[in-house]
């Protein structure tokens, strides 16, 4: 198997007395969709925050392509090839689609913005993802929730990142839009990205992920091959009732 494109070792993050992450290990390969599921408060958002550079871990190591990195900010993470789609999408509502896509990474000619090239690339990118918007020059605030999310995902793709992190991408979507989104995820995998996606929807993730990691109370409470895991096993790991942790079976079952 190929070397992991992203690996986390012993990540710890506390907020005051509360431990949001308590020694989390994680590995991600390219051409892989890794789902991180768990109950509210399991630490999903914090984990995404750490990977995206939005939050600094208190302890632990992060390596990208085998090289240890410090992800001091989302911008730094991006430079290391980790692009994130935040749950709040992090789009400026007053800027139009092109402006948001290239925000912080604008193309220039001399000291001026190269609007023409940016607009061209914007159309191409949205076309590749089969995203429909009325115009790339409407303010993002005027778009639907699904369109906004597609814009955010397109922006994540711009620098051809190795890793794409999506935080709760389906929470704001309806049924049909969720189906469209899952197709989009498969397209990302085909493009060769490593994808980390968090969700509290077991069904959605079961359908699209290659591997599923279950977080519970800030710890990894099970890692499953999505093709083999049953819904009951996943649910048990999420709630902490019953089923044993995979990989610890030999050691004597449940903790």
């Amino acid at each position: 198997m190929s070397a992991p494109v992203l690996s986390l070792r012993g990540i710890v993050k506390s907020y005051g007395a509360a431990r949001a992450l308590d020694g989390v290990d994680l590995e991600l390969r390219s051409h892989e969709v890794l789902a991180v599921i768990g109950d509210s408060g399991a630490g999903k958002s914090t984990l995404v925050g750490v990977i995206s550079g939005n939050q600094r871990p208190d302890a632990g190591e992060i390596a990208v392509g085998g090289r240890a990195v410090t992800l001091a900010s989302p911008a730094v993470a991006r430079q290391h090839g980790i692009a994130s789609v935040f749950q709040d999408l992090a789009l400026a509502p007053n800027l139009d689609v092109v402006e948001n896509l290239f925000l912080g990474a604008e193309l220039t000619r001399g000291s001026f913005l190269d609007e023409v090239s940016m607009e061209k690339q914007a159309w191409e990118l949205l076309g590749q993802l089969s995203v429909r918007v009325p115009s790339v020059r409407v303010p993002v605030g005027a778009l639907s929730a699904a369109q906004r999310q597609a814009v955010a995902i397109a922006r994540a793709l711009l620098g051809e990142p190795r890793v794409i992190v999506l935080d709760e991408p389906t929470s704001a979507l309806g049924t049909r839009q969720t189906a469209q989104f899952l197709t989009l995820l498969e397209r990302l995998r085909e493009r060769g990205h490593g994808v980390v996606v968090t969700s509290h929807s077991l069904v959605d993730m079961h359908a699209v992920a290659d591997r599923i990691v279950v977080l519970r109370l800030g710890r990894v409470n099970g890692e499953f091959d999505a093709a083999l895991a049953t819904q009951e096993e996943l649910l048990a790991a999420v709630t902490g009732v019953g089923a044993p942790r995979r990989g610890e079976e030999r050691g004597g079952g449940a903790r």
Partner: peptide
């Protein structure tokens, strides 16, 4: 961008 949504701008780099 900062005037529109400073946090979004920060996350965008």
């Amino acid at each position: 961008a900062v005037g529109g949504d400073a946090d979004a701008a920060r996350k965008a780099g």
